[in-house]
């Protein structure tokens, strides 16, 4: 057990280090890249007005101080849970983001479930029928959606199911002017608005999980102990369930954690297309308005969320397979 604790300790330490590095990169991103954030923030006005505003922006962003001082201040304020104030809304970024994060979590959660459940089932099916038409159809299906820009897939679904056949709404997370509440009617309305975004994101992210489930199963199925199992007279169903699947599980767990970052990227595009006002929509809105504190905060929480997802996956891996040691 001592070694298990050591492994987990190292993982947690690495996760913590990763979060520190995310903060560092996040800081450098807005300071060192060519392009002057204060200048970008300043509207292009004629005369002295623009200059005065530029000066104010420099001061507001703390850009008049040296880089190390800025870095120090950034780290301190981040750890003090002071994440800055949105330029545009003049509210703490946490408040700005809090309004939309729940919608993104809802969207992500629902589509991840669709992706992983459907993906694992299809992957298993393809592996069991490898080389046969079923396999080719499933693999082709996966690759087809892998090659599709998610925003485009979203638009196509919108054209078909919201414009041509008017069954689903075109935009928003609820009917215009309604606010979320815990009534059956309101929940129904939310689900109805979620249908197309979830379908887009769920199907659009399938490829990775299908392929990894298929390939890791096929890998296992060529092992000698599978031949032995068949030789013992076990049926295909028994072999798949008891011998193959458990051994093919590990790469799938890792991929699920990795996929979360990918699905988050997809969620941004889907939210933009469907004007679903979650984090993604807000990021693009913030970019359009050069609202850097909001952007910085979104990079931070996005990165931290993925680090934590990976950490959880690592811990699950260790629990599923005692052979996993640290590399």
């Amino acid at each position: 057990m001592a070694s298990l604790r050591k492994v987990l300790g190292k993982r947690i330490f690495n996760a913590f280090l990763a979060i520190l590095l995310i903060m560092l990169i996040n800081f450098l991103l807005f300071r060192l890249l060519p392009g002057d954030p204060a200048r970008l923030m300043t509207p292009r006005l004629p005369g002295d007005a623009a200059d005065a505003m530029y000066e104010r922006n420099v001061e507001l962003m703390g850009l008049d101080e040296s880089i190390p001082v800025q870095l120090y201040k950034y780290f301190i304020s981040t750890f003090m849970l002071d994440w800055g104030e949105s330029y545009r809304h003049e509210l703490p970024v946490t408040e700005v983001v809090a309004n939309s994060i729940l919608w993104t979590v809802l969207l992500l959660g629902a589509s991840s479930i669709v992706t992983f459940v459907v993906g694992i089932i299809l992957g298993k099916l393809a592996a069991a029928r490898r080389g046969k038409p079923t396999d080719i159809a499933i693999t082709g299906f996966g690759l087809f959606f892998y090659g599709m820009p998610i925003f485009w897939f979203a638009i196509v679904l919108m054209i078909v199911f919201a414009v041509w056949v008017d069954v689903f709404p075109v935009s928003g997370y609820m009917d215009h002017g309604r606010s979320p509440e815990f009534t059956l009617d309101a929940i129904g309305n939310i689900l109805w608005h979620m249908a197309l975004p979830v379908a887009t994101l769920g199907i659009g992210s399938l490829a990775g999980i299908i392929l990894i489930q298929r390939n890791s199963l096929v890998d296992v199925l060529t092992e000698d102990y599978i031949v032995t199992a068949y030789a013992k007279g076990l049926s295909e169903k028994q072999v798949m369930k008891k011998h193959a699947t458990p051994n093919a599980r590990l790469p799938v767990v890792t991929t699920i954690a990795m996929d979360i970052a990918f699905i988050l990227g997809g969620a941004f595009q889907v939210e933009y297309v469907f004007t679903y006002k979650g984090i993604g929509w807000m990021t693009i809105d913030a970019i359009g308005n050069y609202d850097f504190p909001v952007l910085q905060f979104i990079v931070l929480i996005g990165g931290v969320a993925v680090v934590i997802a990976n950490l959880v996956a690592d811990i699950v891996l260790v629990m599923l397979d005692p052979r996993v040691t640290i590399t």
Binding site: L21, I25, F268, Q269
Partner: peptide, 11 residues
């Protein structure tokens, strides 16, 4: 790890 963690599109 960090580059893999920050969601690719966001970065």
């Amino acid at each position: 790890d960090v580059f893999l963690s920050i969601p690719w599109l966001v970065l």
